[in-house]
């Protein structure tokens, strides 16, 4: 698990570096695990409730529900958390079977993208994204 650490170099640096303080990596990990647990239990509506608003809006085709769209994608099992990287209000959670990107909203962490595959140094190619 990699969390940004800050080595304040002085009083000035300490104040400036507050921004980089180690955030809570457990919360996005829990949100990612829960998202995959809901999918595995075929609770599409509950999984959709964990998506970021824009992601949930863009996912379904016209006339389709978010839950149906998720079911159609047939995302594989998530599995155990292998790595969490949190920077500011954004996080990347690697599970054994998936990589997810999350954003912290006022009411907690939500999934912005899931079913993601790396594409060299380009943005990940994701089955679900905003």
């Amino acid at each position: 698990m990699r969390i940004p650490l800050v080595a304040p170099a002085s009083g000035v640096a300490l104040v400036l570096a507050l921004a980089g303080c180690a955030p809570d990596a457990a919360a996005p990990a829990r949100a990612a695990e829960r998202f995959h647990a809901e999918l595995a239990a075929d609770r599409g509506d509950a999984a959709c409730a964990l998506l970021a608003p824009k992601t949930a809006d863009r996912l379904p085709d016209p006339g389709q529900s978010c839950a149906d769209a998720l079911r159609e994608l047939k995302l594989g099992p998530g599995g155990a958390v292998t790595e969490v990287r949190v920077w500011g209000d954004n996080a990347q959670v690697r599970l054994a079977g998936d990589t997810l990107f999350l954003h912290r909203f006022g009411d907690g962490w939500r999934v912005r993208a899931a079913g993601c595959e790396p594409v060299r140094d380009l943005p990940y190619d994701c089955e679900v994204e905003d």
Binding site: P4, R85, W87, G88, D89, N90, A91, Q92, F101, H103, R112, A113, C116, P118, D121, L122, P123, Y124, C126, E129
Partner: peptide
Amino acid sequence: NSQRLADLRD
């Protein structure tokens, strides 16, 4: 890094 994660990058 926050921006990179927002852009779906490592």
